[in-house]
């Protein structure tokens, strides 16, 4: 299974202190995203990735080394559930 994020122009982001408010244009829904949800979306911007690909991107590019496979899968499921990430 691969995960796909919306293109950058589909998201409007307001960085607030504790989280980012992200307006998802195709749905009109506002999401409040903290780490690592934001990094997950950033990791998926260039191309869809599978679970291992996201895991690798998080530790290589975003310095999130403590992400466990199970925890990451759970976060991805949440993002899929709210429609920000598409699983295919």
């Amino acid at each position: 299974m691969r995960y796909r994020a919306p293109p950058p122009e589909a998201l409007l982001t307001a960085d607030l202190d504790a989280f980012a408010a992200v307006f998802h244009r195709p749905s009109g829904i506002t999401h409040l995203l903290a780490s690592p949800a934001r990094e997950i979306l950033a990791a998926l911007v260039d191309a869809p990735l599978d679970l291992d690909g996201v895991l690798a991107a998080l530790s290589d590019r975003f310095d999130i080394a403590d992400a466990s496979r199970a925890a990451l899968a759970a976060r991805l499921d949440e993002l899929v559930g709210v429609g920000l990430v598409e699983a295919a």
Partner: peptide, 19 residues
């Protein structure tokens, strides 16, 4: 226009669920 977007998004979410 906002209503149109929301309606199309609902269709997209149904598509994802039923694909």
């Amino acid at each position: 226009e906002n209503g149109r977007r929301a309606a199309l998004w609902e269709a997209e979410m149904a598509r994802r669920a039923l694909a």
